[in-house]
Nucleic acid binder design. Structure first.
Lengths: 204, 204, 204, 204
DNA sequence: CATGAATGAGCATTCATTCAT
DNA sequence: GATGAATGAATGCTCATTCAT
C-alpha cells in the first residue's frame, strides 16, 4: 500500500470525502454495484473519473465504505433498546421504529447495504455480514423474552417471526419516497401495530 | 427469414431451452444481472459462450425470460383466490400461501424477478412491472374488502399493510433453504397467522 | 479460471498461437516488459488489442510463455555436453557454442528471458529462475572438473570464471545482428578460444 | 523565468538533490524505468509524489541524470589508462579494474546506465550512447595496439574480444553483492587474468 | 447444434504531471 | 520546499456479440 493510501484510510482528511461517498451510494443504489460505472459516479460529482481514485483505492473499497455507513448504528440502537427496561411489545415497536429511522437521511446507504453487500470481497463481506446477523439475533432474543414473559404465545416461531419482521422493514427502503403520505413516523407506527398484534396472536 | 430465426421468435422449440434458461436464472440469482457473465452461464451448462446465442438473442432477452417465468402465475393465482368465496382472513392466508409456494421449484426465477427486473430495458421492464403492480392491487383490494366486511379495523392503512405483507413474503426467497426446518408449508402457516392477527389488530 | 482458459493452457490448440507469442517476444525485447503495451503487440500482428486475450489470459502470462521459450533447451544441451566424454576444454567450447546457438532463431526470446524475467510474478519467476541457476551450476561443474583433471590451474576461481563466461555469452544477444560479419559460428569460435586460453591461464 | 526554474536549469543547487537522485537510481535499478513509478521513488524518500517535481522536471529527466552519473568517469579513466605508458596487458588489467571499480559506490547508477538508457528520448539517448561507444573504441584500440606490439596474436578478432571483455565486466553489476566473497578487488584480479590469458592465446 | 475466432465498446485502474497554496 | 487536489492519457482487461464453418 502506498503511503498516500495508508494515510487516506487512517485519517480520511479529504475535504470532499463525504460528498464523494454519498454520490457512490446514490449510484450504487440506483443501478446496483456491477451496473454502476465509476464514470457515472464521477458524473454525479462533476469531476473526472480518474479523480475518484484520489478518494478511494478501488470501486470495491467505495462499496465497502457505503455498506459500512449503511449498516452502522443499527446494532447499537437495537442493543440499547433490547437491554433497556420495558415490555417486549414496547421493545418491538421501538426496534421497528429505530430500524426504519435511517430511511430519512440514509436511504441510499441502507439500500446498498441490504442489496449489494454480497458483492464485497470475502473478508469485508464477512465483516459487514456479521452486523446483519447480530441484528437478527437481537430481534429474535426480544421475541424469545416476550414468549418467556407470556406476552407472546408459546407456539410463536421466533425465528420465522424475526425474519418476517425484518423482511417487512427491509422492504421499506425500496419503496420509501414513492408512496405519498408514507412518512417514517406513519410507517413505523403502522408496522409496529401490525407486528405487535401479529405476534400476540389472538388466533392462538 | 431463416427457419432458425423463425423458430426462435415463435418461441423456444429448442430441446435444451428450459435447461439453458434455468442456468441463466441460477447465475443471475447468485451474482445479479450485471455481475453475471454469459461465460458463467455457459460454464454451468458445459457449453461454449457463443453457443448460448443459439437459445437467446441477447443477455437482456435471457433476463426477460427469467423474469417472466419468475413473475408468472402469481397474478393468476391471486385473482382466483380474491375472486373466490370466503372471508378476507382466509383469502389473506391463501394469498400468502400461494405467494410463497413457488419457492419450492422456482426460487431462482422469483429471486431474479424481485431483484433484477429493473435492469430490463424500458419496454419489457414496464411489461414485467405491471405484473407486480397488479399483484399489489389484488392484495390491497382483499384487505379493503376485509375492512368493509368488518373483519379488519377501519383504521387499518391498507396500503402500508399490503407493503408489509409483500415485504415479509418477498424476503423469503432470500433466505429460504438456509433456515433449517423452514418448509414452505411451515412458513406459509406462520406468516399467515402473523398476518391475519396483525391485520385484525386487537390493539385497536 | 474459465473453462476456455483451462483448455487453452492444457492444449494450446490455437492455430495462430506461435505467431502471437513471437510478436510478444519481439515487442518485449524491443521495449522491455513494462514499456511494451499490449496495443503494440496487437499492432505488430494487425489485430485488435482485445483479440490478444483470446490467446493469452494476461500480459504476464505472455511474458511467462516468452521466457519459457527463451530459456528452454539451454539446460538440456548443457547437461548433454557436461555428461559426455571428452576434455574439459572441449566441453567449455561446446557449452559456449550451444549457449550462443539460439541467437540464430530465437534472439528475442532469449533477450526477454535474460532481461525481463524478473518482472514475472513470484511463482513463475522462481520456476524460470531455477533454469538459470541450473545452467550456472553445470558450467561451474565443468570448470571444477577441469581443475581436478589438471587442465585448469588449481588457483582458478571457478565461480567467478563461470560468471565471466556467462556474462560474455549473455551479452551477445544484445549486439548480435548489429556487428557486421559476426556470425554465430565466428562468435562461438572466438569466444571459445578466449575462454579456453583464459581458463588455462599460462600466466599462473 | 522564475528564480526557482533558473536554479533548476543551472543545475541542482537543491540541498537534497543527491539524495533524491539516488532514490531514483535505486528504484530504476530494481524495477526498470517503466516499471518504476514516481510514487515508489517518493516512498523511498518519505515525501509526496508531487514534491519530486521540485527536483526534476520529468521522470525522463531523472532517468537522464541517473544515466549520466552511471556513465560518467568511465571514458575519462579509460582514456587516461590507454594514453599512459606500459604494455597492453597491463592496460587491459587496468581498464578492467577501472571499469569494475564504480561497483563499490555506484552500482545502481551503473546498472541503470547499462539497462535503461535506451528508454531515454532520442536526443539524450544519443548523448549518453556516445559514452558507451567511445569506451568500446578505447578498449578496442588498446587491444589493437597489443596486437601490433606482438603481445596478442595477429589472428585476434579485436572487435569480438572487446565485446567479450565488456560483456564479462558489464554483467558484474547484475550479481555483485550476491556472490559471497566477491570483492571488487578479487573480481578485478580474476577477470584481469582471465582476460589477459585469453587474449594472449597460447592456443594459437 | 455448436464452436473457434475475432471484435467494439466499455471498464476500473494507474500514472506522470500540474498548480494554487 | 513541499503538498493536497485534480486531471488527461493511456493501459490491461472483460464482455456481450457476431459470424463463418
Amino acid at each position: 500500500m502506498s503511503s498516500v493510501a495508508a494515510r487516506r484510510i487512517a485519517g480520511n482528511t479529504h475535504r470532499r470525502a463525504p460528498e464523494i461517498i454519498e454520490a457512490a451510494a446514490r449510484v450504487f443504489a440506483e443501478r446496483g454495484y456491477h451496473g454502476a460505472s465509476t464514470q457515472a459516479i464521477a458524473d454525479v460529482l462533476g469531476i473526472r473519473q480518474a479523480s475518484l481514485y484520489y478518494y478511494f483505492a478501488s470501486k470495491e473499497e467505495a462499496l465497502e465504505q457505503v455498506c459500512m455507513m449503511g449498516g452502522e448504528g443499527f446494532v447499537e440502537r437495537a442493543v440499547a433498546i433490547a437491554a433497556g427496561p420495558g415490555a417486549a411489545v414496547d421493545k418491538v415497536r421501538a426496534l421497528i421504529h429505530a430500524h426504519l429511522s435511517p430511511l430519512l437521511d440514509r436511504r441510499d446507504f441502507v439500500l446498498v447495504f441490504l442489496r449489494e453487500r454480497h458483492h464485497l470481497p470475502d473478508e469485508s463481506r464477512r465483516r459487514v455480514g456479521r452486523l446483519a446477523r447480530r441484528l437478527e439475533r437481537i430481534f429474535q432474543e426480544v421475541l424469545e423474552a416476550g414468549v418467556r414473559a407470556g406476552e407472546f404465545p408459546a407456539e410463536l416461531d421466533c425465528r420465522l417471526a424475526t425474519l418476517a419482521l425484518l423482511g417487512m422493514c427491509n422492504a421499506a427502503p425500496g419503496w420509501y419516497g414513492k408512496e405519498p403520505g408514507a412518512t417514517v413516523e406513519r410507517i413505523a407506527a403502522e408496522f409496529g401495530r401490525l407486528a405487535v398484534d401479529g405476534l400476540r396472536g389472538e388466533t392462538r
